[in-house]
Design a protein around this nucleic acid. Structure first.
Lengths: 160, 160
DNA sequence: TATTTTAGTCAGTCCATATGACGAAAAGGG
DNA sequence: CCCTTTTCGTCATATGGACTGACTAAAATA
């Protein structure tokens, strides 16, 4: 289960020369560690079919349900790609789709109880993994790091 | 070229709730922005066939050349996967493989002049992209962010 | 009412990973 | 020197996760 985590972008390896320590690499390395822990942890807790790609649904879906198109836009992917994710989650019993009463073309994607369980577990594991990193870096520095990343994220989101 | 980071307007639904701003998400967002700039820039400068996956080769290859197995290990992927990357780069004239004089089974993968040009451009674009982010966050904060990420990377590398 | 836009599906493609099985060369122990 | 084991790389194949293009049906609009 160790390497059950496949990323869209290549996982960082070791020994990158100093000159090659781009910011991108510096961001990706801890991300890979987190993803490994979180999705490995999910597998260990009985959700082996939840993969990193599904995160983009869990991150955005609203409690009342979200439309496919809405989810796709928020995750910044095509609706076809999101439909693929929804289908696999649907087959696993994590989401269900119901007709949207407000629009005959649309369907609402909603978390099932099992799906909500995944979401909770996902958040808990993320917090755990973050704490594990904080143990290496020190709580104070981790707090600073998070704060800076949040600030950067806000700026970047504001531009979209 | 994937528009991983599109310029479209925010969708009707709100962004990820506060509670979903995991560290992983905070790391991935700026990474996506960097990757977009860097690989988009490479395409614009005449290297349209260099994709993010190839980064894991460029980051680790030694000037004298590296063996496939070595590259695979450093990039933490299978040798088959690395062979796939090497082949595509080889077809584009970015690397060449020569027999390893020390080992009849092995072949050395080496950058061609064109490959070295890509490496240089890659590093230059990364620096540019980092500077662009620094423009949003402020140079001082970006320096702190980088410093913290470097420290974290060191700790994480030491464990592997 | 007629036209255009929007929500979602179907079909096909490509890329980047993974496994497993394999031949050939090297290394090492008798 | 052989014999066995390990290592280097390849072939074949599968899968996940993204894409584009063409389409239907429903809604919104002119």
């Amino acid at each position: 289960m160790s390497s059950a985590v496949s990323l869209r972008h290549p996982p960082p390896g070791r020994n990158a020369p100093e000159s090659h320590r781009t910011l991108g690499w510096l961001l990706r390395l801890p991300y890979a560690v987190l993803a490994e822990r979180v999705y490995g942890g999910l597998a260990a807790r009985g959700f082996p079919d939840i993969r990193p790609a599904h995160g983009s649904l869990f991150r955005h879906i609203r409690p009342e349900g979200s439309r496919l198109t809405e989810l796709a836009e928020q995750a910044q992917m095509t609706k076809q790609s999101m439909a693929y994710l929804v289908q696999s989650l649907s087959e696993g019993g994590y989401v269900e789709t119901v007709p949207d009463p407000e629009d005959g073309r649309a369907r609402l994607v909603r978390l099932t109880p099992r799906g909500r369980q995944v979401l909770e577990t996902l958040l808990a594991l993320s917090a755990e993994a973050e704490a594990a990193l904080a143990a290496r870096l020190g709580a104070r520095k981790m707090a600073r790091l998070r704060g800076l990343l949040e600030e950067l994220a806000e700026r970047l989101e504001a531009e979209r």
